[in-house]
Design a protein around this nucleic acid. Structure first.
Length: 1038
RNA sequence: GGGCCAUUAGCUCAGUUGGUUAGAGCACGGUCCUGAUAAGACCGGGGUCUGUGGUUCGAGUCCACAAUGGCCCA
């Protein structure tokens, strides 16, 4: 006996029972262990950032992460899945800052880093619990007993090891990075934070500045020869020509800016090499700017003295607006300027005794605004800084982290924005201001304190990833991306445009930077592990038990290997993307232990995250792996599109349009949610989330499946079907058809999953379940219902049983709960030897020999014919219940006719007609007395004439239908026997006699009694075909 | 400002190498079928395939440009 099931099922309730079963019987662990020794399939779990509650988009990625390893396990592979949690980073800190009401780093320092970080640690574990609950409930099988956690000492130590490897390869260096900086909070902002604070109505100065060409430089003895030697004849000749042209009159290069406070930091001017520049004479002086901009700045009418190209101007020198040496500000320069195409080295900064302010060429120079000459301040702009690094420009940085001027300028001590007017006034007095106005434009402000953000160069540690660009690109060529366009699109472009990774952060809650520097000689040492640290000479400040976080590592010092001075740790922490990108090694505490585990699980077969991770985890994984091992660490990756709300808007807490996964899980269950996420759109697409479609999925797919299953259980139990009996040899065409479709399905699903396409696989299953329910079972009902137990009945049971058991296995990776329920009842209930879970079985293998494509094609055509036949009946207004004499079917070929002939009984039955005839060719007009429907090359006509015999038979069917409805209304069991009473006119009497056997059989009537129904019976009165009829049914006991 | 992706019925999505009249499900109206079904069948309304050009005998499909939305980078 199978366990009886109701056709009214609560899926969420069922799922909770299945969860208990899995837990009690350790099914996940067994599913993994059963394959030990087989080939390994590795999923790298991208660690969720545990700084908030999981949302529906997290369910999405976890479902796709789950389905592939489940499939691979059933295909016989050993697929351990280690959970991971990303616990460090600015978002965690920001939440604690918010909780404590802090707005600046100073407040954290005052509060105490130890206390602050303790809050961070605690908050992270609070969210871990929520994540674990969600993960379990959606059926994402993952080893959460042994997760990697990025805050563990062991994890941090592996990160240290990884960084030390890069250090030893000379890939780690210190440079400057221009970042948006809030002068009030005293901290840099992440790009996400910057995006929060853009205002498009910011008022700023819009000023045109005159930079005086330093003709005196060229007049110094031998300079032109020097220039000729260093830069070539062209530049030297141009300078000579310019001096000849302009004589003693001053020449100015005109540049435009909206940030006058950056002018003291100006050390170069950039021009567009190919653009035309004009030299105009104004008030006994010459001005140079792009020809196309002359009119825009009011110089359209000024006398044009000469035209030159941008490249002529390159290497021209000009006088500083503010000579840094006059104002007590140092000038530095990278010792070994980074040349194009050359790897960066450990840059040393050298203080200079003189300055050099040149004109350079830049492809970033726009002729759309300004003057075509761009003011460059390497300390205050990213483009400026990059140009400075490449061309070896001077670096002047007279502003402190509070945004106030240092040195002894007239405006020193002022906040930069307040200094703007003073700077302009000063320049104006010296005749260096050409024009001054204001502009309204978009500018970023701090989202916390509304201070204008300043772009600053700050000291930062870099990893020289661009040096390994070729390896990164070659490695990517070996990765399978789904969808494919990411490979050479978004991800490939990112690699092609690779820039060095600025990986240090001036924060508190993170993996501490494992670089110490000597306070005496400036020597740097990178420490690659705890034992290495403990072995350092004259080690001080290490407190046991060791916690590898700030502030506990901050006080650890040791003796410099070069000068015996005191080595102190650099105060920064690592970008948390370094943490997660190092997970291939750090999850195992490699190379300190578990080296075998690492070897076996590297590289991963599969990873899966959303598309925003191209610059995040996908990149950090790829970069670290390539730099450490020279190869990619993942082979296949599904890159998911984002989930938007029902209106196509991004989900955000602020908008209040966030979908709570628990609402879905509680209303419709995990399987419905999973099926929706898998099949509703391809993995890589953006998708709008719709709870109503989750409900639809539950009704249309899961309930159809469930009802097919419960239909089988009901009848199999009545007939005591034993699946262990040998399969019936007398399969009908209907059976052979569904077996054909089943084996096609297995092949399709297997193939799609093998190609990381669960969506196509799921949609195929959906089609099959529909066909199984609405054709196979619908057409087979009578076979299950009939009273005699013959070979045909057994064939139907065997076939449906096989389909359902196979479906449970095919569905196991998709809807693991309902698959488990169906499998356990169909298999385990009747076979104590069977494996206890569908997830411990092998994935079905398609048997091509069982696929009869001719039969499949013929059945498809038969379905079309039935569809047209029903349409024809509807047109004539004749119910399907009324039998008709014949149907005429027009087909295209003899082969089609033969195919349909084979299935004639199905067509007769479905259309309720007595015979089918086939015609070829066009309509002849002989179809009078027929109702007709056509589609494409086909037409189907049903004879509309109803003889008295047919009419009587129709009434008999009508009576059966009423009796069945009454049985149900009376609350009878499906297998209860009844006595039927009836009263009516002649026609009723005739029908009840003539069709007595048929009616008795269909309604489980022992006898038909022509008498008024007794009071104890269930009775109703109807009008059938213009006759009054009274029917009554009474249950027979015993 | 740059790059990538998407845009097909009210909603969610199919639509093969360009080739008859662009499909399905949901929702809506009507009729039918049914002792597995919360389902199903048939009919109906609902589409300038985002727009504009181009290539072609022929474009939802290929190309260019634009719009809208999303993501990433500036």
């Amino acid at each position: 006996m199978f366990r009886p099931v109701s056709n009214k099922v609560s899926l969420p309730q069922l799922e909770n029972q299945v969860l208990s079963f899995w837990k009690d019987h350790h099914i996940f662990e067994k599913s993994v262990e059963a394959r030990r020794g087989a080939g390994q399939f590795t999923l790298y779990e991208g660690p969720p950032t545990a700084n908030g509650s999981p949302g529906i988009h997290h369910v999405l990625s976890r479902v796709f992460k789950d389905i592939i390893p489940r499939y691979k396990t059933m295909k016989g592979l050993y697929a351990p899945r280690k959970a991971g949690w990303d616990t460090h980073g600015l978002p965690v800190e920001l939440e604690i800052e918010k909780m404590l009401g802090f707005t600046s780093k100073a407040q954290i320092e005052d509060y105490g880093v130890a206390r602050f970080n303790a809050h961070c640690r605690e908050s992270v574990f609070r969210y871990l619990k929520e994540w674990e609950a969600m993960t379990e409930r959606i059926g994402f099988w993952l080893d959460m007993e042994h997760p990697y956690i990025t805050l563990d000492n062991s994890y941090i130590e592996s990160c240290w090891w990884a960084l030390k490897q890069l250090w030893d390869k000379g890939l780690v260096y210190q440079g400057y990075k221009v970042t948006p900086h809030c002068p009030r909070c005293g901290t840099s902002l992440s790009s996400h934070e910057v995006a929060l604070g853009y205002r498009d109505d910011a008022q700023d100065p819009s000023v045109y500045i005159k930079f005086k060409v330093a003709k005196s430089v060229y007049k110094s003895p031998g300079f032109l020869e020097k220039l000729r030697k260093g830069y070539g004849d062209r530049e030297a000749d141009f300078v000579k020509w310019l001096i000849d042209l302009t004589g003693e009159k001053p020449v100015y290069l005109v540049a435009w800016t909206t940030t006058p406070w950056t002018l003291p930091g100006n050390t170069a001017l950039a021009v567009a090499a190919d653009a035309e520049y004009g030299i105009v004479e104004v008030d006994e002086a010459y001005l140079i700017l792009a020809s196309v901009r002359l009119g825009k700045v009011g110089l359209g009418d000024a006398p044009l003295v000469a035209k030159v190209t941008g490249s002529d101007l390159v290497e021209l020198r000009y006088e500083p607006l503010f000579n840094p040496f006059d104002f007590g500000v140092t000038v530095t320069r990278m010792d070994t300027p980074e040349k194009e195409g050359q790897p960066p080295s450990n840059v040393k900064w050298k203080q200079l005794a003189s300055f050099n302010y040149p004109v350079i060429a830049g492809d970033f120079v726009s002729l759309e605004d300004g003057t075509g000459i761009v003011h460059m301040a390497p300390a205050y702009g990213e483009v400026d800084y990059d140009a400075g690094a490449r061309k070896g420009l001077d670096f002047v940085h007279p502003v402190d982290l509070q945004g106030e001027f240092t040195g002894n300028y007239p405006f020193s001590g002022r906040f930069v924005k307040d200094a703007d007017p003073l700077i302009l006034e000063d320049l104006g007095e010296r005749g260096l201001l050409y024009r001054s106005g204001t502009i309204t434009h978009t500018y970023p402000f701090c989202w916390r304190c509304e201070a204008p953000l300043l772009y600053y160069a700050k000291r930062t540690w870099y990893i020289g990833t661009s040096r390994e660009k070729e390896a990164l690109v070659l490695g990517n060529a070996k990765i399978n991306w789904y969808p494919e366009h990411i490979k050479y699109g978004r991800f490939g472009d990112w690699l092609e445009n690779n820039v060095d990774w600025a990986f240090s952060r001036e924060r508190y809650w993170g993996t501490p930077l494992n670089i110490w520097s000597c306070s005496s000689c400036g020597n740097y040492e990178c420490v690659g592990g705890i034992d290495e640290l403990k072995a350092k000479p004259d080690l001080k400040g290490l407190v046991e038990p060791l916690d590898l976080h700030r502030p506990f590592v901050d006080g650890i010092t040791f003796a410099c290997s070069k000068c015996s001075g005191e080595m102190k740790r650099q105060t920064e922490v690592l970008d948390c993307w370094f943490d997660s990108g190092a997970m291939p090694v750090a999850q195992w505490h490699y190379p300190f232990e578990n080296c075998d585990d690492f070897d076996r699980s590297f590289p991963a077969d599969f990873i899966c995250e959303a598309v925003d991770q191209t610059r995040g985890w996908f990149y950090s994984l790829h970069a670290i792996s390539t730099l450490l091992f020279g190869r990619p660490c993942f082979e296949n990756v599904i890159c998911l599109g984002h989930i938007l709300d029902a209106e196509g808007e991004k989900m955000s807490k602020a908008k209040g349009n966030v979908v709570d996964p628990w609402a879905m899980l509680e209303s419709y269950g995990a399987d419905a949610t999973r099926w929706y996420l898998i099949t509703s759109s391809p993995a890589g697409n953006v998708r709008r989330f719709s709870g109503s479609i989750v409900a639809e999925v539950m009704r249309n797919f899961l309930f159809t499946l469930w009802n097919t299953y419960s239909f089988f259980i009901i009848y199999a139990n009545i007939d005591q079907f034993d699946p262990k009996l040998p399969a019936s040899p007398s399969l009908t065409d209907l059976d052979r058809w569904v077996m054909s479709r089943l084996n096609e399905l297995i092949a399709d699903v297997d193939n799609a999953l093998d190609n990381y396409d669960p969506t196509t696989a799921g949609r195929r299953i959906e089609t099959f379940v529909d066909e199984l329910s609405n054709w196979y079972v619908r057409r087979s009902r009578r076979r299950f219902w009939k009273s005699q137990s013959d070979a045909d009945k057994l064939a139907a049971y065997t076939t449906l049983y096989h389909c359902l058991v196979t479906l449970s296995k095919l569905l196991a990776p998709f809807t693991p709960f309902v698959a488990e329920e169906i499998y356990r009842n169909l298999v385990c209930s009747v076979d104590s030897e069977a494996v206890e879970s569908v997830h411990l079985t092998d994935f079905p293998i398609a048997d091509r020999a069982q696929v009869d494509t001719q039969l499949v094609d013929a059945t498809r055509l038969a379905m079309t014919v039935c569809s047209l036949g029903r349409a024809a009946r509807a047109k004539a207004g004749i119910k399907v219940r009324q039998p008709l004499s014949r149907v005429l079917v027009k087909v295209r070929s003899a082969a089609e006719r033969d195919g349909l002939q084979r299935l004639a009984s199905q067509i007769l039955d479905e259309l309720n007609v007595k015979e089918v005839e086939f015609a070829e060719g066009e309509l002849t007009g002989d179809e009078r007395g027929y109702a007709l429907a056509e589609e494409g090359d086909y037409w189907v006509a049903v004879a509309t004439e109803i003889s008295s015999e047919l009419k009587a038979e129709g009434i008999a069917r009508e009576v059966v239908r009423r009796l069945q409805t009454m049985r149900r209304s009376a609350g009878l069991d499906i297998a209860d026997y009844i006595v039927t009473y009836y009263q009516g006119g002649d026609i009723v009497q005739q029908v009840m006699t003539e069709f007595a056997d048929y009616i008795n059989q269909e309604t489980l009537s022992r006898e038909l009694v022509s008498a008024p129904p007794p009071d104890s019976s269930y009775a109703e009165k109807y009008r059938i075909s213009d006759s009054e009829i009274v029917l009554g049914i009474q249950k027979v006991t015993g």
